[in-house]
Amino acid sequence: MKKYIYLFLGTFTFGLGTMGIVLPVLPTTVFYLLTGFFWCRSSPKLHAKLVSMPLYQKYATPFLEKRMTRAAKQRMFGMMGLVFLLSAVLVDHHLIRILLVIIYVSLVIGISWYLKKRPTAKPEK
């Protein structure tokens, strides 16, 4: 039963990640990483297909290998900021807005720390 739940969750997060390629408010990398987690536990064949996909290699592999370009890092933090700003504007509660700022700052610090000691990849031509 657990295998089928992981399979469903992996398929769901794969769909969200793929939609995130064209919709700027959905984080492609996060959903593809979750897909890898779920499919690794449910179907080795699907996991193998996922990690060999060009889209996975473009969005998730650089993050896992900590070799993102400076522009990719800036784009990632900018999109995260846009999503959090949009959420803060739509919510009419000051405590929630403060919480959103704390979460965003924590994410920026945590991800920056995670990527800090790796060299920045050279931009693709």
Rank of each mutant, 00 (worst) to 15 (best):
M1Y: 07
M1K: 07
M1D: 06
K2A: 14
K3W: 03
K3I: 10
Y4P: 00
I5M: 11
Y6A: 06
L7Q: 14
L7N: 04
L7V: 02
L9I: 02
L9F: 08
G10D: 07
G10L: 01
T13R: 09
T13K: 02
G15W: 13
L16A: 08
G17C: 10
T18G: 02
M19E: 05
M19Q: 04
M19W: 10
G20Y: 05
V22A: 10
P24S: 15
P24G: 10
P24D: 15
P24Y: 07
T28Y: 04
T28E: 09
T29P: 07
T29H: 04
F31N: 15
L33N: 05
L33P: 00
L34T: 01
T35A: 15
T35H: 02
G36Y: 01
G36M: 10
F38V: 02
F38L: 05
W39H: 05
C40M: 14
C40H: 12
R41C: 09
S43K: 01
S43W: 00
P44I: 03
K45C: 01
K45Q: 13
L46S: 11
H47V: 03
A48C: 05
L50M: 07
L50A: 02
V51K: 14
M53K: 08
M53P: 00
L55M: 10
L55A: 11
Y56N: 03
K58P: 01
A60V: 06
T61M: 07
P62T: 01
F63K: 01
L64S: 08
L64R: 10
L64N: 06
E65K: 12
K66Y: 09
M68R: 03
M68G: 01
M68S: 00
T69N: 00
T69Q: 00
R70Y: 03
A71Y: 00
A72F: 00
K73L: 05
Q74W: 12
R75S: 05
F77L: 10
F77I: 08
G78D: 01
M80S: 07
M80K: 02
G81I: 03
V83H: 07
F84D: 05
L85G: 12
L86S: 15
L86A: 15
S87F: 05
V89K: 04
V91Y: 10
H93F: 08
L95I: 13
I96T: 13
R97Y: 02
R97H: 12
R97T: 12
R97K: 15
L99T: 13
L99S: 15
L100S: 03
V101W: 12
V101S: 11
V101E: 03
I102C: 11
I102K: 12
I102A: 15
I103C: 11
S106W: 06
L107D: 07
L107C: 13
L107A: 13
I109W: 11
I109Q: 04
I109K: 12
I111L: 10
S112Y: 04
S112I: 04
W113E: 11
Y114H: 06
K117Q: 07
R118C: 08
R118F: 14
P119F: 05
P119V: 05
T120A: 14
T120V: 15
T120Y: 03
K122M: 07
K122I: 12
K122L: 09
P123K: 04
P123G: 01
E124P: 02
